[in-house]
Each structure stands twice: as structure tokens, then as C-alpha cells.
Design a protein around this nucleic acid. Structure first.
Lengths: 122, 122
DNA sequence: AGCATCTGCTTGGTACACTTAGCACATGAG
DNA sequence: CTCATGTGCTAAGTGTACCAAGCAGATGCT
């Protein structure tokens, strides 16, 4: 007998998954199939009704081509890395661009210019 | 994930936990109390009867003063993301973009589209 | 001899992670 | 309009992660 968990324990990871899924232009069923979980369950996870296990998180992360560590961090399962108080977060877009050996120098400059245009205008 | 009914398959984590526990000179009950789980459950986990959730793993890792990442690695939950077929990179531009909370969804899509336009030109 | 108090293990039960089947509403093709 | 197929969501059930209570063998103390 499955009782509904009455606590909408807002974990934030559901929101994160949904955002990433939409960014990848995947439907709920598509992602569910790739991640090998049922689509209703994924729906409930995205809406914060259930807190998925690490196995599922890893599987979803793989399907979204996100590192498992990032996923666990979003799920609050990893020892938290304090976000830099001043601004940028995560790996850092500019640094990632500079480290990408497949980009030419001009391409890097273009990307960084566009990125800064987006960011430096609050 | 409703998984296999019965199996002695997952011996890795349990053994690891037991080793670390004995290395720290902790009894089963002591570790269980610090990790805030029941001692019978810890016993079963160590013997590979149950596969603990990430929450429990993190808690045990904390009690043993081991990093959660090490724990997850031992549990086989921290698999590396498959490297891109063309050539692997460092941090990953796309992931960095996705994780930047200062960007809107449209901005992320734009940046990723431009980035892919640069890169996917084999 | 007791009885304490360790040790780890078994039993019985509850909560929840997760599934299969199916609903209700869109959109598009014939 | 009707049918098909897409979207996400609900309902009902199964399996298991996990806990409280208690068992059985050591060791030690009086």
C-alpha cells in the first residue's frame, strides 16, 4: 500500500532536471526511456513528489549528458562546494571556453563576447 | 528503481564500509549511531544484502570521515560521463553554460547553438 | 553460579521508490 | 469530423530500503 508522502519536500533537483530536459529538447517520455525509468515517475520526480535514489539520479544525469557529480550536488547529496560570493558559479563558462581545444581563438572571443553581453546587463 | 529481487551481487560497498569501520575501531552499533541508521541495517549493508541509498551512503561517509565522493565511487555511482567521440575536453562548455544561473533559457540555447556551430563542423 | 554488557544477527513491519495501465487534453493528417 | 500520436498526469500495485524489538554467543566482574 503506497501512501502519498504528504510533504512536498522541495528538493530543487526536480526543477533542475526539468530545466535540463527542456534545454535538451527532450520530452518526458523520451528522457524516461533513455534513462530507463518510467515516465510517470520522472514526472513525479520533476514536480518534487518523490526524491529519486542515487541510481536513478546517475541514470538521468547520463541521459542528460551531465556529470553524475553535478547531479548529486544539485540533489544535495554531495558535500557542498560553496558558490563564489561575487558572482560566477559552476565550472565557469569563460574558463571552459578557453580550455576547449576545438575552438579557434576568434571563436573563443566571439563566444565570450556574447556571453558577457548576456551576463553584464542586470 | 525496483531492482533484482535477491542477489549477493553488490559486495563492493559493504566490504569497503566494513574495512573502514574496523580501521576506525568502531563497532557496528557505534558507527550506526553516528551515521544515524539502525545497526541491523548497517549489518545487512556490510554483508551486501541491501544496497544503501545515496543518503545513507553520504551519512556513513560522514561518520567515517571519508568524502562522499569516495563513497559514491566505491558504490559505483560515480561513473564518468562518456567522452565525446570526436575528442574529449576539460570542463565542458555546454555544461558550464547550462549551470550558469545568470543566463536565461533562451540565452543558454543561443550560446550552445553557436558553440555547436563552431565545433560540429568535422 | 550468576548478571551485565559488549559483539553481530534475525524477525516483523512500515514507508516510499518505482512500475504498468490508463486518463485527459492537444495537435496534425486523412 | 475522426483517427492517430504526442504531451503530461493520475491511480493502483509491487518490491525493497530501512527501523524497532529481540536473539545468541562472547567476555568480564562479583
Amino acid at each position: 500500500m503506497a501512501e502519498k508522502p504528504d510533504a512536498l519536500w522541495r528538493s530543487g533537483v526536480g526543477e533542475f532536471i526539468k530545466t535540463q530536459r527542456e534545454l535538451a529538447n527532450l520530452s518526458l517520455r523520451q528522457l524516461a526511456e533513455i534513462a530507463k525509468i518510467s515516465n510517470p515517475y520522472l514526472s513525479q520526480v520533476e514536480r518534487g513528489l518523490y526524491k529519486p535514489s542515487a541510481d536513478v539520479l546517475k541514470s538521468i544525469a547520463g541521459a542528460l549528458k551531465i556529470s553524475a557529480e553535478t547531479m548529486y550536488a544539485q540533489a544535495g547529496l554531495l558535500d557542498e562546494i560553496a558558490p563564489p560570493p561575487g558572482g560566477a558559479e559552476g565550472p565557469g563558462v569563460e574558463q571552459a571556453v578557453r580550455l576547449d581545444s576545438r575552438l579557434s581563438v576568434e571563436q573563443k572571443e566571439t563566444l565570450i563576447r556574447v556571453y558577457r553581453g548576456f551576463v553584464e546587463r542586470a
